[in-house]
Amino acid sequence: MKLQEAEILKLLPAWMRDDDSVKGLAEGTDEVTRALAARIKLMSRWNQIDQLDEQTLDEMAWELNIQWYDSTAPIEAKRAVIRNSDLVYSKLGTRYAVEQIVRDYFRTGEVREWYEYGGEPHHFKVLSDNPELVNNNLELFLKLLGVVKRRSSWLDAILICLTGEMFLSSGMAVREHSHEEHVMGCDEIYLYTGAVVHDNNRETVTIGTGELIAE
């Protein structure tokens, strides 16, 4: 008898098989045993996630009942989602769960709770430096977010934070009486940051924080 086809009732003595309570216990044991057999079958695939093809990954996600799994996502995202599914399941409704799905699908991301930016209680923002989070995948992200976040939590905004640097050269002229001196070659780096904010179907672009550092 295969474990996934186990029928405990048939293994019991004949005089016990007619007892309704025994039948109920046997049927319940069969369900648990078959579920465990299915999980054991999956265990052999955990160490091969990076080698599995997309069809096998989709089947594995279905077997694991990963509700935030997207079958149209890139294969590397699928592997990340499956690999971290147990951790996300154990922390559904928490900051960790939201951050994890953002990283699995979009590589980078973090959550800012309301008390970290002076917002209203139970509100939060999502920050990432990957524009794809909102460019082509905003609807998908909001759908996934609804599965893993706490129902009493509300998203205020999604901020795409971009950073960059550019090199500038400056010069200086000094005149003293009839003597004039030119000094060239002072390099400066101007660091700038920007943010694209999506809030209630409205997009704004903010540029304006910077720091001038001279070498």
Rank of each mutant, 00 (worst) to 15 (best):
G194D: 12
V205T: 11
V148G: 00
P121S: 14
V111N: 01
H198Q: 09
L138S: 04
T209C: 08
K125E: 15
V197G: 10
P131R: 09
S128P: 08
S153T: 00
F124E: 01
L142W: 01
H122G: 04
D156C: 07
N130R: 05
Y117G: 08
W154V: 02
L159G: 05
S152I: 11
R202P: 03
E181G: 02
H179M: 06
V174P: 02
S170H: 08
W154G: 01
L144A: 01
R151S: 14
I189T: 07
W114T: 08
C161G: 00
F167S: 13
S178Q: 15
G146R: 04
Y192P: 01
S153K: 03
A173S: 12
T193Q: 15
D199C: 06
M184C: 07
Y117T: 06
L168S: 09
L140M: 13
L212H: 09
E215G: 07
Y117N: 07
V196L: 12
E116Y: 09
G146Q: 05
A195F: 03
E181C: 05
V126Y: 02
L155V: 03
M172V: 10
Y115N: 10
K143A: 00
C186E: 12
R107V: 14
N135C: 10
E180Y: 10
N136I: 04
I207D: 13
L155S: 03
F167Y: 12
